[in-house]
Design a binder for these strands. Structure first.
Lengths: 139, 139
DNA sequence: AGTGTAAACGATAATGATTTGCATAAGCAA
DNA sequence: TTGCTTATGCAAATCATTATCGTTTACACT
């Protein structure tokens, strides 16, 4: 993703452009999967030396509130990804292993085994992400 | 839910029947929504005095591994519910408020506002819950 | 009913991710 | 460039969850 595009994204979301934010956003755009804050922080340091972990947390929080980033919590840790992507996963209820599904599959899967991984589907979780009525006012 | 049914559930899942487990399971069956471990623990104490918080965690973990219970993590904390129910939610990306959706709605919702609550849908999260290949062997 | 053993329990103390407070530095509108 | 606001970095606090360990209990087999 070109640097300009990142700046536009940030400005468009009403966020100041700082090297740290660009670094985190760029890192986010580079990776193909969801990532934890710690992970992003470690990787983003190549682009912004001295970046603090706490800052990474704040940046992700800010971008999440601005709608640029999506936060998803799995087994006690938060994962982040760009909002414009699809994030469908299989999550093993026993060992917690997370894998992305190939396409966007949906209904009547219970009891079925997914082709490829052999994951046995027992149930599903669907969360609609967005803004509640109150927060829409507060923009 | 009758006490017998609970025992059958536990036994059927290969779990020993203890007053603590019955208490937690009963509490889970009583509540209409997902609940945190702390919450379940507090409520289950009416049925099993002296129940330890750590025990509640272990019971839920055990029942989750046995497939009786579904664990869902939101904003850094785990929520639990019986597996046999549907759990579709709206989650505000700003304030974190979680609400259950009325029915089971699915596609082409992005950008729409939900009737009733006015929740603005920006994206969604779909997790398929079940067992990975390795864990299926280990049963 | 009595007994042995693996599994469950309760309390306390770690762990690890996330937040908070505060002083300093940097973005950006005028 | 100046000034005001917001962002950053660090150290310490918080909070859910996990690990440890000694004690108790469920339950299969007498």
């Amino acid at each position: 993703m070109p640097r300009d595009r990142l700046n536009v994204l940030l400005r468009g979301a009403g966020l100041r452009v700082t090297p740290q934010r660009v670094a985190v956003l760029e890192t986010l755009a580079t990776g193909r999967h969801l990532a934890t804050c710690q992970d992003l922080w470690r990787r983003a340091q190549r682009r912004a030396a001295g970046l603090g972990l706490v800052t990474a947390y704040r940046i992700l929080e800010r971008m999440r509130d601005a709608g640029l980033v999506e936060q998803i919590d799995i087994r006690g840790t938060a994962y982040f990804g760009l909002t414009d992507r699809h994030h469908d996963h299989t999550i093993c209820q026993r060992c917690g292993t997370i894998e992305a599904t190939d396409g966007c599959l949906l209904d009547s899967l219970a009891g079925k085994r997914l082709r490829g991984t052999g994951f046995l589907v027992q149930g599903h979780r669907l969360d609609l992400l967005g803004l509640c009525h109150a927060c829409q006012q507060a923009v």
